[in-house]
Amino acid sequence: MRIISADKIRKAVSDLCIKANLILREDALFALKQAATKETNKKAKKILRAIIDNASIAESEKLAICQDTGMPVVFLEIGQDVKITGNLIQAINRGVESGYAKGYLRSSIVKDPLFRGKPGYTPAVVHRDIVEGSKLKITVFPKGFGCENKTQLKMFKPVANIAEIKKFIIDAVKAAGPDACPPYVVGVGIGGTADYACLLAKKALLRKIQKGLSPKGALPELERELLSEINKLGIGPMGLGGKTTALGVNIETYPTHIAGMPVCLNISCHALRSATVIL
């Protein structure tokens, strides 16, 4: 049994909240720079450059990349040989509160979804996975709601073909249109149950864009095809045209039931933010 104190977790979460919100993910920045070089539409190029400038100002001046510092979503991979002393969930929420306060981030969370109230920093949404080993992996993923609002779930028939799935994904990007800060990163979850497909779609956004892919296999091929078709839509940065509508498409799958095929799509804006630490 390895012991990790809740206090250590609180400090780690606090640091991750600041890092995620102030420093754009390396893969996202790389994809943006590549897109800015390749883009031929003048307006699109100018906007992509502004987005890259924004990331550099955010990092150097310690400002949030985006004023929507998101709903803090925390992913835990808890080794089964780890013993946590103290209150884990409380430690995470205190960590979020301290990180958001120290980082001058935004209070965006209302305590009651129906009756709203004055916004604060917490609670976070916490996903827990129990894994082998004696380590604790913590990822903080601040999810902005401009793009979260564009999430779509569809329960396909088990006999649905790839073309139908592709159409659903492309139509969902079209529906997001100029509203959710394109160029997007498109997370797709296929399989499991309805709720699990949604979780997979969000987890897909944690994987590195493009770069993490193996060159072969049906799934990477599908990701590339989708990316290329999405980029033919002509939505472009801010929806003002160009060939950069998405920076990447990441698909995660899981076995499912003989009677169905759940597909969920979770979009990220160009400010794809997450930070991870392993304790």
Binding site: L63, D68, Y104, R106, D179
Partner: peptide, 22 residues
């Protein structure tokens, strides 16, 4: 259409981009 972050010390305002108009 904007809800800025908190204002860091020594700054006029925090991060302050636009939110979805629709």
């Amino acid at each position: 259409y904007c809800g800025p972050t908190a204002t860091p010390k020594g700054k006029v305002i925090g991060s302050c981009g636009p939110t979805t108009s629709s």
